[in-house]
């Protein structure tokens, strides 16, 4: 199982290294979302951790959904998903590898988004930002687990990207609330205790989405 997982992940990462399609699109989308939000908030937003945390998570969702859709849609070209299903790999392994590949692409774009956030929102560029990493990683994993599961079918449909957003965004709301709270607490320099509960909610939602995806993927990819 692990060999198959690594092989699939390697395949996706090689494709991404050669083309860089998903990462570049995610970075550009994140940049656009941040610019739009900064313009919409106005110049007085500089240094406000609540606004910055909100913007960070809006960028994560708005760039993550098309990114996941793009990654899953690649498997439909030449009916690659059927090819994968015909291989001896478990459907759950295919799902895990797709989630890992999308999550890695998103993590790279998240690093770029964080740098842009510091720049646009006039935040302090210090070690405090490192505390955002576990929060963002958990948020990214949840979004990838959910959007990869649902995107498996929506990417084959007309208006599939819109349907993916309509289905994923409400399910992601608990993670969004917890993520924004935790990020705002970190950016305002609050103690670790303020972040513990949101982190637990993020981890619980991630576990739920990953387990659901792991169990249900075979019915969608069939």
């Amino acid at each position: 199982m692990l060999t198959g997982f690594c092989a699939l992940l390697h395949k996706d990462l090689t494709l991404e290294r050669r083309g860089g399609r998903v990462v570049i699109e995610l970075c550009v989308l994140s940049l656009l979302v941040l610019v739009v939000l900064v313009v919409a908030y106005g110049p007085e937003t500089g240094g406000r951790p609540e606004s910055a945390a909100g913007a960070l998570w809006v960028a994560l969702i708005l760039s993550g959904l098309p990114g996941a859709s793009l990654a899953v849609a690649a498997e439909h070209e030449n009916d690659c998903l059927t090819g994968l299903r015909l291989s001896p790999l478990e459907p759950a392994t295919i799902y895990a590898a797709k989630v890992a590949a999308v999550a890695l692409s998103m993590a790279v774009s998240q690093a770029a988004t964080l740098l842009l956030l510091v720049l646009f929102f006039n935040l302090q560029f210090d070690l405090n930002l490192l505390r955002l990493i576990p929060i963002l990683l958990l948020g990214t994993l949840g979004l990838c687990a959910l959007s990869t599961l649902l995107g498996t079918i929506t990417s084959r449909l007309r208006a599939g990207e819109m349907l993916l957003a309509l289905l994923t965004a409400p399910l992601y709301v608990p993670e969004l609330i917890a993520g924004v709270k935790a990020s705002a607490a970190v950016l305002s320099g609050a103690s670790l205790a303020a972040v513990v509960l949101p982190l637990k909610i993020l981890a619980a939602c991630d576990l739920l989405f990953v387990v659901c995806g792991y169990l249900l993927f075979e019915y969608l990819a069939g």
Binding site: L157, R158, C212, Y219, L220
Partner: peptide
């Protein structure tokens, strides 16, 4: 919005369960 096919029905079932 989805087409009347088995895939949409399966996705709808997954959405209902989640």
């Amino acid at each position: 919005m989805g087409e009347e096919n088995e895939q949409v029905a399966r996705l709808a079932a997954v959405v209902a369960i989640v």
